[in-house]
Design a protein around this nucleic acid. Structure first.
Lengths: 219, 219, 219, 219
DNA sequence: TATGAATGAGCATTCATTCAT
DNA sequence: TATGAATGAATGCTCATTCAT
């Protein structure tokens, strides 16, 4: 609902930016609902209430509109994660905060999330490439936290990259379940459980390890 | 390459079955490589070395061929899981064995796996529905194991369904990484790490809990 | 009317070749009448009495259909010219025979001629390139004849290439006039006048120079 | 490059006329370079450095801009020819002077010439009609000269209209060769050769016939 | 007069599906 | 059973033209 307040930060946003948002969101909701390939540009412009040609005033191709959606969510998610992490000092707190931030960012933009997590993969080679960016960034962040925790003796020796994949997979699956059939009904509410699972998973499973209290950092 | 040699070795395979396999595998490899929508029926029949019309003697529609691929992998995976579980008595051993069986089944049929895990989601509403079957079945099995472990005092109280999602997500992500960029290079070799992560994640993190030795159950 | 009897020489021409001819001629007549850009593929297939997709069974693109028309006329014209020339021994007789052969070949395939001489130039860079081939071939042949006549003392010293352009220009303009408003009503009947003009133009203007009787070589 | 500096030097050129020239020349250069159909109005206004809407303040349609180009060249060519002819008294001198004037006028306005001779024919029915005007006027003038020469006994009896077409065709082809690949490098320098060819062609091939000295009439 | 965002009809091309052989 | 030519609806994209500012 409160989707993407102009990335440039400008509050006013000339009519140009408004139209762009309008089309981006119309495209996102259509792709989310019908799937990228089953959505025609006509469907998108009908939802946005503009003419066909207008779409191409803002996106060079249909494909570009999907890439823009991916990029938009990328910014939102990475932005939220970076912000959340900056409030915490220890590796485990950063990790726990990141998990919650990801849940909050994705679930706060469901249409975008559905496009990125469900519809885009496999729809086009370029999408997959772009998707990798978010994925790699997130997994890298998590891997670093785990490695740090290991180095600090907070977790047992392990393949940090592999564990990071497990972490990211668990988070995505929670989001997928929520998007698919509202299980869990609220991803953010499930954060504590997920954090507990993850921290135990990497072998840093007790609050004494220093991650307790990371919850609620993303207002 | 060594993709899906007739699942039940018993099949005598009349010419009809052979053609069907040929087309199913040609479709799977094409969809895996190019994506469902970017693959035309022409491409599939070219790979199978038959004429266009022949495709429709074995599948009523293109869509049906993808559903057949999903069903095929479903059988393979669930079959392997059920078989693996039958060799173990305790909940945790069953869980650990299931994880390895899933990794082995998917990674033993890469083309099918790519179609099911990467290309099918989002490509068609019917696919998503069918995909749910595998997913729900797997998650249900895992949830049951977890609940059992909790009931037996082997793991702390928790939302078993939620934890099960985490488990399944972690497994899928390992498979995704392998399919995407061979990270890890061999999913089955990564099974111990993954099992450890998962068992710790549900709070049953020590071999003393009774899951050790589950490895190698899938011959 | 008697347009393009299968280039491969095969008289029977399977249904495949027939369809191709049908489409080529439908395209030629449409392009000739409406112009290349003002003709849609729909228009062509309607004239041919086939479905849209069928067009693309025989031509990879609309552009290719126009190139095929150009090539077809190229073969017809060059073929006729080479054949006509082979019946004559002297340079001037060859030249005169070529002129008549060109008039006959173009005027015997009016739709193709209109496409090549009127509609194709400027319609697409590729067309222009291909058009050059016919043009250069014809001009080269004429230039050779003129040079030979000069060398044999049958015509005064001159820039043979420049004179050849004049010759070809005169021939094309006669054809253009005929296509535009049937002036002259019959290009072949105008051949003697044109030949006289041309031979005088290159300074070999008397029948004594040895070109008389070249007329009528193309039955 | 030095294309069409306002035809009648008298024009004071208010800002309105300047804009018009600017757009006419931008359109001409674009059509000449890219072809009429491959040039969008956007391309023209970009070259002219004005906004899209401005184009329609000076031309009712895109088509009208091409017609204006044709008309402009018509004025230039006919004007030059009439002027050149007025300096000569005899039919053959008028003819020879006309040829040179046409070469000079077209080659002095290459962009316009390319549009008129190469791009416009076939691009639109209306263009063809308008093109006829220049064509008929020129051919008529030449035919009259030839008829006069015949009547004066300077040339043998002939179909003056047909000969006139040959003359015009030869001139156009020289211009086409120059525009296509700078063969000849300078049409005006080729005028003597062309004049000789033409006068010989109509059977008035000796300077004694009274056409010598017609060269250089267009200052 | 000048702008340029918006329009929407029009078009080339693709491809799942059919069916006569 | 097998073939592959034929179909025609569907779609992404362009661009001449309009009009509110």
């Amino acid at each position: 609902m409160a989707d993407t307040p102009s990335p440039s930060g400008a509050r006013t946003g000339g009519p140009r930016e408004e139209r762009y948002e309008q089309l981006l969101l119309a495209a996102a909701s259509a792709y989310a609902e019908l799937g990228y390939h089953r959505t025609s540009v006509k469907t998108v412009v009908d939802r946005a209430g503009v003419a066909t040609g207008t779409f191409y005033l803002y996106f060079p191709t249909k494909e570009a509109s999907a890439l823009a959606i991916i990029d938009r969510l990328y910014e939102l998610v990475i932005g939220a994660v970076v912000k959340a992490r900056s409030s915490h000092a220890t590796s485990l707190a950063k990790l726990a905060a990141s998990v919650e931030a990801v849940l909050a960012a994705f679930s706060g933009h469901e249409a975008l999330a559905k496009v990125v997590l469900v519809q885009a993969p496999g729809a086009h080679p370029d999408f997959d490439r772009r998707l990798q960016a978010i994925h790699a960034e997130l997994t890298g962040l998590v891997a670093r936290d785990i490695q740090e925790a290991v180095d600090e003796g907070l977790a047992p020796a392990q393949d940090a990259a592999l564990s990071a994949r497990c972490v990211v997979g668990a988070v995505y699956e929670i989001l997928n379940g929520w998007m698919r059939d509202r299980q869990p009904p609220d991803p953010v509410a499930a954060a504590p459980h997920l954090q507990a699972f993850i921290l135990r998973g990497i072998g840093a499973g007790t609050p004494a390890s220093g991650w307790a209290g990371a919850g609620g950092v993303t207002p």
